[in-house]
Structure formats: C-alpha cells, structure tokens
Design a protein around this nucleic acid. Sequence first.
DNA 1: GGAGTTGCTGGAACGCCGTTCCAGGAGCGC
DNA 2: GCGCTCCTGGAACGGCGTTCCAGCAACTCC
Lengths: 242, 242
Amino acid sequence: MATRSRRPDRRQEPLSRERIVEAAVELLDSVGESGLTFRALADRLATGPGAIYWHIAGKAELLTAATDAVVAAAVRPAEPGGAPGDGVRTVALGLFDAVEEHPWLAAQLAAQLSRSPWGTVAPRIFESIGREVRALGVPEAGWFTATSALMHYILGAAGQNAANTASAAAPGAGMDRAEFLDAVSTAWEGLDPDAYPFTRAVAEQVRGHDDREQFLDGIALVLAGIAALHPPVAQQAVTVVR
Amino acid sequence: MATRSRRPDRRQEPLSRERIVEAAVELLDSVGESGLTFRALADRLATGPGAIYWHIAGKAELLTAATDAVVAAAVRPAEPGGAPGDGVRTVALGLFDAVEEHPWLAAQLAAQLSRSPWGTVAPRIFESIGREVRALGVPEAGWFTATSALMHYILGAAGQNAANTASAAAPGAGMDRAEFLDAVSTAWEGLDPDAYPFTRAVAEQVRGHDDREQFLDGIALVLAGIAALHPPVAQQAVTVVR
DNA sequence: GGAGTTGCTGGAACGCCGTTCCAGGAGCGC
DNA sequence: GCGCTCCTGGAACGGCGTTCCAGCAACTCC
C-alpha cells in the first residue's frame, strides 16, 4: 500500500548476513561509527537485536564485514596496459575515493591492519597493490617492502585527507573545505616558533592545496623510491642486479 | 601500615591531570584499550569517577592526552651530525619502539590522525620528521609531500609490526614470534591461487624476516624516492649517488 | 495429515560503560 | 568563626553490547 517512510522496506525477504552488512554500511555512512548500534540496526531492519546475532557473532565481526565489503568494492582491478605506474595510481585512487565516500573507513582500516593483519581485508589490499608492483618489474626480493611502503602511504594519506573532508563538512561547523584548510593552516602558524619551526614553515602550503594532486605526488615519490632501489628487471629474462 | 596490594599507593599527593594520564597509560599497557574504564582508573587512583572528571573532560580527551604523553617521550630529538638519513632513522625507530612498547598506540595514532590532524599529536610527529627532511636538503616545495610520505609509512609499518608482536604474545595463544609468523605465512599460502597469486608468492618472505630490518628497508625506499624526486639543494656539498 | 524437528525471529533482561549530579570536606582569606 | 573556592567520590541515569528464551513458520518423517 502506501510507501513507507524510508527505503522501500522490502521486508519479506529474510534476514541474511549480506542484508545486515549492507544496512550497517548505510548506517555508518549516514550517522558515523558511533551511530552503528545493534538497536539502530535492528530498527532499520525491522527486527530485534537477537535476530541479528543469529547471523553475526558480534560487533567486531560486523565492523570487519562492513569494512571488507566496502574494500572489496573499492579495489576494482585496473585494466591492463597504460604507462608504468598507472595501475598503482588506479588502485590508490580507488581506495582514496572509498575512504572519502565512507569517512569511517580510514579508522577501521587502520584498526584492523594494526590488530589482525591476517584477516581478509589486509590481503585484499595487499594483493591488488602488489600485482601492480610486480607489473612494474620490481624483482621479487623487493616485493614485500615496496608493496608495504605503498600500502601504508596510501591508507595513511587517504585517511588524513578524509578527515579534512569530513571535518570541513561536519555538522554545526558550517565550513567549506577552503575555510577548513585555512583554519588548520592558521592554527599551525600559531604554534610556538621555537618548538615547531618546520610545521610553521609548511603551514602556508597547506592552505588551498589540491588533495588529489598532493596524494598523487606522494605516490610518485614512493614509486620513484621503488624505481631507484629496485631497478626494474626485464619482464622475461630476470636477473637480479646488486 | 601493611603495604597495600598493588603499587605503593601514595595517596597523599592530590589528583592531577598528570597523575591521571600516567595511570591511564599504565592501564592501557597492562590491560589494553578495552581495559581503560573510568571505574578501573578510579580504583587505581583510589577515588571515584567524579573526581577524574574534574581534571579531564571525557574519555576522548583522556586517550588524546595519553597518546600525546607517549609520543612526546618517544620523539626524542636526534643528535646532530651523522650520515644523511640518520636523523630520519632515529626518529622512525623511536616511534617504532614506542608503538611496540605500547600496543594500543598504533590504533590511537591512526584514529587521531584521521580524525583531527590539527591536535597536538600530529604536529609533534610531523615536526620531528620534517626537521630531518629539511636536514636532508630537500627543497621547500617538497617538504610537505616528503614528510607526509615518511610519516604515513612509519606509522603504518610500525603499527602492523606491533600487531604481529602483540598477537604472538597474546594471552592464551602460547606462541612465540617465529611460530606466529609461520602461522600467518601458512595462512597466506592457503589463499585461493587465482585470487591471491601475489600474496601467496610473498608469503615465504614473511616467514622469519627481521622486523626492524624490514622496517628500515622501507625507510630507505622512501628516502630514495625523496632523493630522486627532490634532488637536494647544496647544504654544503651534498651529492646523492644513484 | 498430524507430530516432531529445525532454523530463525524478536522482545525482554543483564551487566557494564561513559557521564552527570550533588552533598560534603579541606584549605584559606577575612 | 565564617564564607568561599576548589576539589572529592559515591550514587544514579541512560544507553550500549550481548544473552536468553518463548514462539513460530517450514519442512521431514511416519
């Protein structure tokens, strides 16, 4: 009959792990990490908390599953061909955009990588970056170091940038992005000159920079390091120099 | 008279923000993040929760203060002199060791950097790394990118390594470090060959590697990228091989 | 086709958390 | 002595993750 308030509310199909995770992601996106409670989730799914526990072991598993779902959608495989490094940039921007779209993702990724690096999330990201590293012609001995360096830079920088975006758009503080960066820059300029000379000197660069561009600059830096330390060997006819 | 159960219990000196933060760090170190509650903290300080709130606004501020205190102790200034890059390594290892000593630190750092990069923690780390970057002779235009890349790598890699250490020593799982790495390596080797060829290929390197060495390899990689992209302007007469 | 079983549901209840409130004590100027 | 400020700590509140369990479809077996 009358369409319900929010969402189609198709509540004939039974509860399932996928539907729960999907609802959890929506809740995280709309009300943030603290808004994801089993009660709110149960309301949105028109059920009770107990029913959810039949499908999901607890909150930790719920957050892991939500993170994994979003990451799986984000690391779309790069199409073959293109300049060396294009594949890395594609994967990196995929994660960058995902973190920007889901502001809760950065903290979750960091928490999960630094708590259980053997879950499903870490290998997924590691694999998609690693393939591009291999495609660059890096010799096998350098795979782990190069991929780790890229992964940590990508996740760290994307997370910090998402924080900027989110804070600028924060409810209450009617700031746009430029105003927000200006505020940060001004705050840094106000630091103690003796204790923070470097940060003060960099403050000006923060004002009005382009996030995406700066993010890619960092990628280029790490790629340059990879190229310098691991001179690409020919794809076939592999020889390890050094 | 009789000495109390835990700690000297010197409870004549009044409550203070420092004493609270100190107790919070001890609690975090001994029972982990979930063990830090206002009730437990009040017990340890032989007071009630209300008294703590007179000095600290809430849990978020408590965690921020604890993180800041540990970071401040960790980023000891590097002594001048030494080969180019030594300063960076000193700062990096300081943070690496701090994260290893305080396993909760990695998640806190990530959360705080990706939530409010304008707090006191971020500038502190940024500053100490940045000074070393400047000392490398990087031109000013490259300061922000180079320092960010280093910072993200350092925090990410240190956090992941701390997770390994902590998991290996986890209560219940009577594993030592080698066993733990072996378990991770084996798990990775068991991944789907079609979906995870790269991760499987790297699994062998994970077994029995040296953390500190691998961490420094990553630093060297980023430093090489900095040297390649930002050829140092002459400090006195710095030349970079390549 | 009835009875038993299984798989799932959702509301009630438990214990703990962060946080607030407030009666009161210690120290101090007057 | 008195009032005032600063600080204390216990009690209480609302909300959280989690557990428990009575109930109910659907399906199986006889």
